[in-house]
Design a protein around this nucleic acid. Structure first.
Lengths: 163, 163
DNA sequence: ATTGTTTTCGACCGATTGGACGAGGACCCA
DNA sequence: TGGGTCCTCGTCCAATCGGTCGAAAACAAT
C-alpha cells in the first residue's frame, strides 16, 4: 500500500549532502531554504525528514565524523610513509570538516565535549587509524603530530606544514 | 570644542570585547543587537564606530590574533619544560580562539589563506614564540606538535593530549 | 549659559529566518 | 481503476536580521 522506498537511506543521503553545505557556510550561516535548494528538494520536504534545523545539523555532523580515516593501508611501506599517506588522504577536506566540528562544539564545555558520544566515536576512529600504523603506545602522541601537521597546513594555505 | 576622548582606543576596546562574543556564537550566530547588549552600548553606537557587522568582525579577529603567544619565557628551565609552559599558557582560550579563526577563514581558498595578511601576522607571531625556545630550524616542526597537542586537548575535552 | 561637535538613543525599513500547514501529486497494492 | 500512504509543494506567520535616520544627550571650549 505505501510507498516503500528506503526512507532511512534517503534521509542519510540528505544529511550527508547537507554536511558540505553546513561546513561551507556554518550552522547559523545557512537557512533551511538554502539547504533545500542546494539539495534540490523543497523546504517542507526537508522538514518532513528532520523536525528542526538542529536535528538536520546533528545528523550531518555525525555522518561526516563517522567516515574519517578510512584510508587504505599499505603495509609494505615504511611507517613514516604510511603516516604521510594518511596525512595526505585527509588533507583535502580537513579544513572544512574541522570548521564543521568547531561549529558543532561551539559553546560546549570541556566536560561536555569529553562526554559527547559523537566526539567519542570520532576520536576512537582517528585513534584506530593511527594505531594500525604505529601501535597502541604511540597512538595518542602520533595522532597529535598528524593533526598538528594538518592544522598548520590548513592555516598556512599549504605554505607551511608539508615537512 | 568636541569631546576628545580616545576614540581609537575605545574602538579597539569594543572590538576586543566583541571578539569573545563572536567566538562563542559564531559570526552568523550573533546579531548587532546582541553584541551591543553584551557590550553595554546601543546598536547605533556600534554602527557609529563600525560601518558594518563584517568590519566589526574583522577588527575583532585581528585584535585576537595579534595578542597570541605572549607568554613569559623562563630561559633557566629545560626546552621541553618551556614548551609545556607555552602549551599550558595557550590551552585556556585555544578552543574559542580557533573557532573564531575557522569562522574567519570560512570559504577562503588555500591561496587566499596563504595571502591573507592577518593570518600571515598570526603565523609569524606563533612561529616566533616557538622559535625562541627551539631555534629557527625546528620551529615549524615544533609548532606543528604544539598545535597538535592543543587541538587534541580541545577535541577530547582535556582527556587526551596532555602527554 | 551658549555654541558646536561627538556620541547615544529608539523607531523604522525591507529582507530573511525557522517553522506550521493544508492541498495536491506520486506511488504501491488490490 | 480505485483506495490509501507517503512525499512534495507553495503559502503564511511572527520574529529577527543588517542597516538607516533624525532627534536628544553628553561634553569641551568660549
Amino acid at each position: 500500500m505505501p510507498k516503500i522506498i528506503d526512507r532511512d537511506k534517503y534521509k542519510k543521503d540528505l544529511a550527508e549532502r547537507a554536511a558540505g553545505f553546513f561546513s561551507k557556510h556554518g550552522y547559523a550561516g545557512v537557512g533551511m531554504r538554502g539547504i533545500a535548494e542546494h539539495l534540490g528538494v523543497s523546504k517542507s520536504a526537508l522538514y518532513h525528514y528532520f523536525p528542526t534545523k538542529e536535528s538536520l545539523f546533528l545528523a550531518s555532523t555525525e555522518s561526516i565524523m563517522s567516515r574519517v580515516g578510512e584510508a587504505p593501508l599499505d603495509v609494505a611501506t615504511t611507517e613514516s610513509a604510511q603516516l604521510l599517506a594518511l596525512v595526505d588522504s585527509m588533507r583535502g577536506d580537513f579544513g572544512p570538516e574541522m570548521a564543521l566540528v568547531f561549529d558543532y562544539l561551539r559553546g560546549k564545555s570541556p566536560t561536555e565535549i569529553a562526554a559527547d558520544e559523537t566526539m567519542q566515536m570520532s576520536r576512537s576512529t582517528y585513534l584506530k587509524a593511527v594505531e594500525r600504523i604505529v601501535g597502541p603506545e604511540r597512538a595518542v602522541e602520533t595522532l597529535s603530530v598528524v593533526i598538528g601537521r594538518l592544522m598548520l597546513d590548513y592555516l598556512s594555505g599549504g605554505e607551511l606544514g608539508r615537512l
